[in-house]
Simulated assay, not measured.
Amino acid sequence: MTRHTLQGRDDAELLWFRRRGMLRAAAAWTTLGGFAAAWAQQRSNVVELVGDAQVNGRRATPATAIQTGDAVETGPGSNLVFVIGTTAFQVRQNSRLVVERGATLHSVGVLRLLTGAVASVWGRGPHRTIVTPTLTAGIRGTGVYTEVFPAQASRSYFCNCYGTVELQAGRDRAVSRADYHQSFWGEAEPKAGRLLTPAQAINHTDEELEFLARLVDQRTTWQVLGRKGVKDGNGSMDENPAQARPASAR
Rank of each mutant, 00 (worst) to 15 (best):
L15C: 05
V131W: 00
G33R: 11
S156I: 05
G143N: 13
S183L: 04
A192N: 13
E239S: 10
T74R: 03
C159G: 05
T30H: 11
V47L: 03
R214N: 03
V46E: 02
D217N: 12
S95L: 06
V216M: 06
L6E: 11
V148M: 04
R155G: 05
Q90H: 15
G170E: 12
K228N: 06
T61L: 06
T146S: 11
V230D: 01
A40D: 14
M22R: 07
G102N: 04
D11E: 12
G57F: 04
N45G: 04
E210D: 14
Q152T: 01
G33F: 11
A37I: 09
L105R: 15
A192C: 00
V46D: 05
T31A: 15
L15G: 02
Q168E: 15
A213K: 00
F158M: 05
D10G: 03
V148L: 07
L105I: 04
L23V: 14
V110P: 02
T197H: 04
W222Y: 14
V121S: 08
E147C: 07
L212A: 06
T61E: 07
E48K: 01
M22N: 15
R177V: 14
A213N: 01
G226P: 10
F17Q: 10
W29C: 08
A169S: 15
L114D: 12
G77Q: 03
A178D: 08
D52A: 13
S176G: 10
L15D: 13
E147D: 07
T134H: 11
F89E: 00
N160D: 14
C161M: 07
R140Q: 09
G138H: 10
H4S: 10
Y145F: 13
T115W: 02
V131Y: 00
G170C: 05
W29A: 02
S248V: 06
R173F: 08
R245Q: 13
S120C: 13
V99H: 01
V230F: 03
E100P: 00
R250G: 08
L14T: 06
P190G: 06
A247M: 07
Q41I: 01
Q168A: 15
T61I: 01
R101N: 03
M22K: 03
W29G: 02
T61S: 15
N94L: 12
G138N: 09
V72K: 00
V165C: 08
